[in-house]
């Protein structure tokens, strides 16, 4: 299933501390990208979801140019660029990284190089290459992870692939292609550097990996992730959404992985995670050990839909992560 390969990419990116971000050789040995096709799904008038391998890409196009949320893998950049050019000939101005994982940032360098930043005044005078390449926006913690010393034997991420503009506040706003775009920080969720991107006029949210539809969300504890933060992010997304009626239509959500969603899907996701969180928290309160919790199968009813018995992010790992989160002081 596609989700498994997507996950394996995600983990590899984490395990190798993103060292192989641009090392196409080692990627190609492990994963055959030759058959990956980049497909575009029209979401709203000027918003597209690009699907290939790795995290979903959100594309916003218009008179000002192109804005991209997440960039998948470096190996796919040429195909992604070709697909973008089918939809817009405008300059790529902005790239937003929802977080640092390689399956969402691998194409940063190539897509940035294909674009340009609007620059002038004292900035253009002081920084000679300020206009070269698109701006890459991310939360500060995403940049910190990308510039952390790489794992042994792995190359560092080249500076051309790093965010060029970071924020450390709850939100960062920009106006592009005739609409306000709000980038919101979701603390300690999938990682500690997650952003969701809200296109206010188009009424579309690009969620990154705090919301996925293909499997239990990966809680990257090593990089500050937590189940509480993921649930909080899902609640924040639900708060932003205005449906047409009941749980249908209105604001649309492009997930980090999986299918285009509306509020009903995010509500089901939030319900599933909240119930699992409550069950494991109750077991911890009763003094159950991790082994006892695992034996009690607290995710049994959701496993056929969300779980995995093999691959990178198994149900067991998910339960372990939730248990670990909730056993610590911050998690309670």
């Amino acid at each position: 299933m596609q989700s498994l390969s997507v996950s394996s990419f995600c983990k590899r990116g984490v395990l190798l501390a993103l060292g192989i971000l641009l090392a196409s050789g080692s990627h190609a040995q492990q994963q055959d990208f030759s058959k990956v096709k980049i497909e575009a799904l029209k979401v709203r008038d000027n918003i597209y979801m690009l699907v290939g391998s790795g995290g979903n890409i959100t594309l916003q196009i218009g008179a000002d140019g192109v804005l991209i949320v997440d960039t998948q893998y470096a190996e796919l950049s040429d195909r992604i660029l070709a697909k973008i050019r089918e939809l817009s000939k405008g300059p790529i101005r902005y790239i937003i990284d929802t977080h640092h994982h390689a399956d969402h940032t691998g194409g940063n360098a190539k897509l940035r190089a294909a674009g340009m930043t609007v620059s002038g005044g004292n900035v253009g005078g002081d920084i000679a290459d300020a206009g070269a390449g698109a701006q890459i926006i991310a939360h500060e913690n995403a940049l910190l992870h990308m510039t952390a010393p790489p794992a042994a034997g792995q190359p560092a991420i080249p500076s051309a692939a790093l965010p060029t503009l970071t924020y450390f506040t709850p939100k960062k706003d920009l106006w592009f292609n005739g609409e306000g775009i709000r980038i919101m920080y979701e603390p300690n969720a999938h990682t500690d550097g997650d952003s969701i991107v809200y296109f206010r006029q188009s009424d579309v949210i690009s969620s990154g990996d705090v919301y996925v539809t293909n499997q239990y969300p990966f809680i990257d504890i090593a990089n500050g992730g937590s189940i509480q933060g993921i649930i909080a992010a899902a609640n924040n997304i639900i708060d932003l959404i205005i449906p047409v009626y009941g749980q249908d239509g209105g604001t649309l959500v492009i997930p980090g992985h999986g299918r285009l969603s509306d509020i009903g899907d995010v509500i089901n996701y939030r319900e599933m995670l909240t119930i699992i969180r409550d069950r494991i928290a109750d077991m911890i309160r009763k003094g159950m050990t991790l082994e006892q919790v695992k034996a009690a199968k607290p995710t049994q009813d959701y496993d056929p839909r969300w779980g995995a018995s093999s691959g990178f992010w198994t149900t067991t790992q998910f339960v372990e992560a939730v248990y670990k989160n909730l056993s610590t002081a911050q998690g309670k």
């Binding site: 497909e39 799904l41 979801m49 699907v51 979903n56 009941g246 749980q247 249908d248 239509g249 649309l252 999986g258 299918r259 285009l260 969603s261 509306d262 009903g264 899907d265």
Partner: peptide, 9 residues
């Protein structure tokens, strides 16, 4: 549509 398209009620 492909699987990644929106699901509805």
């Amino acid at each position: 549509p492909p699987e990644y398209a929106q699901h509805t009620s």
